[in-house]
């Protein structure tokens, strides 16, 4: 699968951009948090696309954001 670049993303209609990023993020998140993957992916998609692209290329940033999202989610559900 080709990397998702900013230019490839910009070529897509706005309503498809988040979807394209989500399709990349979901499997990575599913590896870490199987049960919560759908919710975590939805939360992270609210972040700016430019930052999401950086996260896709940086496992450390992605995992930090995932843990942040889980903490927020747990606080929200409490």
């Amino acid at each position: 699968q080709e990397p998702l670049t900013a230019s490839r993303l910009a070529a897509a209609p706005l309503h498809e951009q988040k979807q394209m990023i989500g399709e990349r993020l979901y499997p990575l998140i599913h590896d870490v948090h199987t049960q919560l993957a759908g919710k975590i992916t939805g939360m992270l998609l609210e972040i700016d696309n430019s930052e999401l692209l950086l996260m896709l290329e940086s496992p450390e940033s992605l995992h930090a954001k995932i843990e942040e999202a889980v903490a927020v989610l747990q606080a929200h559900q409490a």
């Binding site: 988040k18 979807q19 989500g22 759908g38 992916t41 939805g42 998609l45």
Partner: peptide, 22 residues
């Protein structure tokens, strides 16, 4: 309130509903 439905879940192959709020 609407916060009950937050976050909008993403599932592969399914149009993400969070797009309505962007």
């Amino acid at each position: 309130g609407s916060s009950i439905n937050w976050p909008p879940e993403f599932h592969p192959g399914v149009p993400w509903k969070g797009l309505q709020n962007i």
